[in-house]
Simulated assay, not measured.
Amino acid sequence: MTDGVSDPGSEGNVPVRDVARGLVFDPAGRLLLIAYEAVRPIDPADPEARTFWFMPGGGLEPGEGHVAACRRELEEEIGVADAPIGPLVAVCDGPFHLFRTPRFARERYFVVRLPDDRIDTRRLAETEDNPVLGTRWWTPDELAATSERIEPAGLAALVRTLADGTLPETPVTLTWHPTAQKG
């Protein structure tokens, strides 16, 4: 829950960060993702490639639960106050090294269905430690077909299931792409 605390299972003794993120859908079933510039190449074969896409959300503040953190982060990043936070549908735990501050991330992902696709990202860049390149609504088919780097791995398959209205019985375990795990 706090930055700067080592996790015995983490690699390289990086700080632990508990994170809540929203799988934010609009009424058309599209998922909102944010493009960031990574601090290191995301593909060893292409040293210039540094763009990756991620869900809105962020770290828990002291004493804050995951749902409250997700709601707060969505207001800060996409300007949606009092977002309807749905069920926990996925988790991803492990070292993550694409942001400026490496961390052992313990991420929890919640379904968020908005009544429309209106968002306000004017404050987004000021809340992030990596350069924000933009936002985009993705259809499940676009996510499945893209060559863009989407974090975490397995997100496209989960989104397709959720867009069809099916919720997993237990949270799905996702993983970071290998280059996101290495410092």
Rank of each mutant, 00 (worst) to 15 (best):
L33V: 06
D46H: 15
V80D: 00
G29L: 08
W53Y: 05
E64M: 04
L23I: 03
V91D: 09
R30S: 14
I78S: 03
N130G: 05
R72M: 12
E107T: 04
L32T: 03
A125C: 11
T127I: 10
A69F: 07
A125P: 09
N130M: 06
I78H: 07
L23D: 07
A68S: 12
R30A: 10
R122Q: 08
V111R: 15
A83G: 07
A68K: 13
R118K: 13
G86M: 06
R40T: 02
D116S: 10
V80L: 03
D93A: 08
R123T: 12
V91P: 00
T51N: 02
L114E: 00
L114K: 01
I85Y: 05
C70S: 12
I78N: 03
A69H: 06
P131T: 15
G59S: 00
G22W: 04
D120P: 02
L98W: 15
R122F: 04
P87S: 13
A35L: 03
V67M: 09
L32E: 03
W138K: 01
V67K: 13
A68T: 11
E128M: 14
R122K: 08
A105C: 11
G65P: 07
C92R: 03
P27A: 12
D93F: 09
D43Q: 12
P115M: 07
P56L: 09
V67Y: 11
T139K: 07
G58P: 01
T139M: 08
C92M: 01
W137T: 01
P41Y: 09
P56D: 12
V111K: 12
A35F: 00
G57F: 03
R103T: 09
V111E: 15
A83E: 05
E37K: 14
E128F: 06
V111N: 14
E64R: 03
E64W: 06
A90L: 00
P56A: 10
L133M: 13
L74D: 07
L74V: 04
P56V: 03
L88F: 10
G57L: 08
P62L: 00
D120A: 02
H66K: 14
L114P: 01
E77L: 06
P56Y: 09
Y36K: 10
L60E: 00
F96G: 02
P47M: 10
R118C: 04
G86V: 06
E77W: 01
T135Q: 08
D120Y: 02
